[in-house]
């Protein structure tokens, strides 16, 4: 089951929604999430926990032209949680650049 989930994501032609994946595999979305968490532990996918608050990871204040970041950053874009598959070349790229 675990391999089927990863395979379905890798073989999807472009991005796929969690609900669509749930329908394709006939599994609860919650179970698929759990399995993707498992793959995240194995370093095969990244579970983006903070996509809705990217600015929150940054320094103190956030305004265009001054200092960026801050949990109250007005430009935080609330985007969907995304779970991308990790490229095998990523580790190599990180050491080269």
């Amino acid at each position: 089951m675990l391999r089927e989930v990863l395979q379905a994501v890798e073989e999807a032609d472009g991005p796929i929604t969690l609900n669509e994946l749930s329908r394709r595999l006939q599994l609860d979305a919650g179970v698929i999430e759990a399995m993707l968490e498992h793959w995240a532990r194995k370093g095969k996918v990244n579970v983006d926990r903070d996509s809705g608050a990217a600015c929150a990871r940054m320094p103190v204040t956030c305004s265009c032209g001054s200092n960026p970041g801050g949990a109250d950053c007005p430009f935080v874009a609330r985007l969907p949680r995304s779970i991308p598959v990790v490229r095998q070349a990523d580790i190599r790229d990180n050491t080269q650049l």
Binding site: D50, A54, M58, S63, G65, F75, D90
Partner: peptide
């Protein structure tokens, strides 16, 4: 919205 926090938001990328 603003380019500056966007540059810092690239920290969310692992590669």
């Amino acid at each position: 919205g603003c380019s500056v926090p966007a540059i810092y938001a690239t920290r969310t990328l692992t590669n």
